[in-house]
Design a protein around this nucleic acid. Sequence first.
DNA 1: TCAATCAATCAAAACGTTTTGCTAAGTTGG
DNA 2: CCAACTTAGCAAAACGTTTTGATTGATTGA
Lengths: 349, 349
Amino acid sequence: MATIKDVARAAGVSVSTVSHVLSGNRPISEATRLRVMDTIARLGYRPNLLAQGLVGKSTCSLGLLVPDLANPFFSSVAETIEIAAHDRGYSLILCNTNLDPAREADYLAVLLSRQVDGLIYFPGTRVPNPALTEAIAGGVPVVVVDERIDNLSGVFVDNFDGGRQVGTFLAQLGHRSFLFLGGPEGLPTVIDRLNGVRTGLGTAGAPADAMRLHFGEYRASHGYETIHACAREGMFAREAAQRVTVVIAANDMIALGALRALRELNLRVPHDCSLVGFDGIDLTALVTPSLTTVQQPSGKVATSAVQLLLSRIEPGNGHMRDENGRFSVSHIILPVSLVVRESAAAPPA
Amino acid sequence: MATIKDVARAAGVSVSTVSHVLSGNRPISEATRLRVMDTIARLGYRPNLLAQGLVGKSTCSLGLLVPDLANPFFSSVAETIEIAAHDRGYSLILCNTNLDPAREADYLAVLLSRQVDGLIYFPGTRVPNPALTEAIAGGVPVVVVDERIDNLSGVFVDNFDGGRQVGTFLAQLGHRSFLFLGGPEGLPTVIDRLNGVRTGLGTAGAPADAMRLHFGEYRASHGYETIHACAREGMFAREAAQRVTVVIAANDMIALGALRALRELNLRVPHDCSLVGFDGIDLTALVTPSLTTVQQPSGKVATSAVQLLLSRIEPGNGHMRDENGRFSVSHIILPVSLVVRESAAAPPA
DNA sequence: TCAATCAATCAAAACGTTTTGCTAAGTTGG
DNA sequence: CCAACTTAGCAAAACGTTTTGATTGATTGA
């Protein structure tokens, strides 16, 4: 790898002159400029970003902490985040936290060591990670995605309202007995969605307490296994007193697992049992029956997160500060919308 | 951020002593060691990885170039690669090339500037990117995944054999008229899979030329739209002379799109038309009918890629060199296996 | 007792940049 | 013709590390 010194020597100028040619910070005669540029091209010189990051203030890199890349919702958001960051000149360091607080802390430490300019953080764990608090104290800008955390800027969707729309919709269809397949118990997104559903049911006149709850991972296997287990308890039996007529999943992956299980049990969706998901991943439109789900504006979430973060990082784009000169905390709340597809219908007579 | 200087000052020792405490390269008295460690903890000191990377030879970072993170196959491989890299102490810089050669070149330039220790590269484009050739010339270790490129180490699956298994299987089921939904025309993975299918059909006695070909993107939309278009041409009509009885998709996303379209056309899968995919993403087991597909060992692909790359990067783990002292090129070819599920059956009578 | 060895530590160079103070011309204006 | 600029370029410091040669006392061996 050719260095700036090599270029300087080959072009017969000083190192600083090469630097000035590149940055345009000082006037350079056209002749020298051309000669330097030519040498750069000839030698295939590329500035060493490590050295630049060391002397300058910015490394043009962001850390992205995602709980589970295998979940299409996350991978799709991650993809858009990556593209948005790249468009603005930032590289992304990918961290798959696997919902493990220890891994999370580990990654946070590495990212700080790497002097990232900022962090985009999808909380996968219940409690705010102490390592995160430390990072923030260290002055690294953080944007939280998908979950509201006090004192931290964030982008999230209106999970409660999404749940409410589901609840209202199902109650109006006539459902009166519900099975809620949650994600990890205690996770704010899960709580909000559940509370939303309850509120929706309540306002539409359905008994909100007629809902069975099963928490688990945000994975298809959770939906699949829970449905089979519930079936063994007779929850879907035609003659059951409180026959479940609709399954509400806290995310689409759970719903897809549940859908598979329902089919295996020869329960027709939606004829025998309706099914609703949450997230709006692309696959929900592809499966049969297509899945009624709450559509998150995942592209908007991603671009907003990047924009919010960079507005904090880059000087002079007017990020708000409070009266103490500290950066203010912004929360961007994006709306969600219920997408009604084939999987939800009126309950069996 | 506390620096090593701050630690040295606070502990009343020189900078080099702190460094030696951390690295263990020189003997340090127990008393000093304890005092330094204590100071480090108290100040929350973290070594600056940029500075380390600048002076040392390694940055402990790898570049990952993926064509399309939204494709579950890629995101799942990316996840495993990330985990394997992190376990070995490497960070991953994520690049979503979007199948665009210009973007690819752009990313490659950035990664070189960032002094990555190595590259894991999923080719999404037909021609080997000139920027890649340049990177290799610059001495950056590269491992290619999913496609055989001469003179480059790589990990890939036996696409031809996968296709062959599909062809044999379908011919033996009695199919005689095929529709192949390829990925991008000219892409080696597509070519290999197609040639495999043809060979399989041939050896099992089916007319390999009785296969219609439609190339397109590796996306669900391609499968969906092509099936609808083909249906309009009457390709699936019961009375058609050369009625297509099975759709062979070059990957699972295309297959899922095709499945949806077939359902919309009221064609029962597999009763009216069989369907086979390729990749073995998790979702193929979840949809109904579950998808017959060629299972790639995606976890093994990921870990092999990381292992192969690190064996080149890290000194002394015996990576082979040829007689000229250059690193030898290794190709790891992993087997695939046809997973027979509900979507493929004998053709209609 | 003296040279040789050893343990513990320090000082300085190096990595590849950017930034800034400086110098040596050349140019202007009166 | 000289002071005051301007232009173009150079040299050196700084960023936070690691590495290595040097230094100091203490310990050994004969």
